[in-house]
């Protein structure tokens, strides 16, 4: 069988989903027999490659970098998995949404509430601009599979990857697979 080209992406999230992925422990060795990890925060690849089979996308779309990357990911990937609650719902990353526009929020945090000499973060080209709101991934690009959980527990990730490796329709149901939180 041909090896799957797997990517993992870290958008607006806490990296907890990636940690949970690492919790797969020794099963990772088994996984390694079926996949090539072609892009990941865990691997040092700068450019998102072409012809990716599966992408696990952690995090919500919160800033312009996220936006750019997720569009690229969608273009170059066959099966896009919204990986974890932030990607699926916005979750903790989207906690800022009810509070209004990002500028006002940044001002509150970095200027008004600053203990010493607060100033607005400003580093063009280094710190990406925040979007007006935080979006779940499927609001920006079509998503093929949703894997909820904050983070998705390792067995849940494994169950999904096993389904993907086995090929055929992917069906996630029941508390073990789709419970949020």
């Amino acid at each position: 069988m041909e090896r799957l080209r797997l990517a993992t992406i870290w958008l607006g999230g806490c990296s907890g989903c990636h940690m949970s992925f690492l919790d797969l422990d020794e099963w990772l060795f088994e996984l390694a027999q079926h996949i090539d990890l072609v892009y990941s925060p865990l691997a040092d690849v700068k450019e998102y490659p072409e012809h990716v089979d599966v992408a696990l996308v952690e995090g919500a779309v919160a800033n312009e970098d996220n936006l750019h990357l997720i569009r690229q990911v969608r273009e170059r990937t066959r099966l896009l998995v919204a990986f974890g609650d932030c990607a699926v719902t916005g979750n903790v990353t989207a906690l800022r949404n009810p509070l209004g526009a990002p500028e006002a929020l940044l001002h509150t945090i970095y200027v008004e509430r600053a203990e010493i000499a607060g100033r607005m973060p400003h580093a063009p080209g280094i710190v990406p601009r925040l979007l007006d709101k935080v979006y779940p991934v499927h609001k920006i690009v079509p998503v093929d599979v949703y894997l909820p959980g904050c983070p998705p527990p390792a067995p849940r990730i494994r169950a999904l990857l096993e389904q993907i490796i086995a090929g055929g329709d992917i069906r996630l149901t029941g508390r073990d697979m789709i419970k949020f939180g």
Binding site: A82, V88, T89, G90, A94, N97, P98, K133, P136, H138, K139, V143, Y146, L147, P148, L172, T173, G174, R175, I178, K179, F180
Partner: peptide, 15 residues
């Protein structure tokens, strides 16, 4: 949500 098989919400969140 689990019982009805909700793996994601298709409507926009109101926040």
């Amino acid at each position: 949500a689990i019982a009805v098989g909700m793996d994601h919400v298709r409507f926009d969140y109101a926040f």
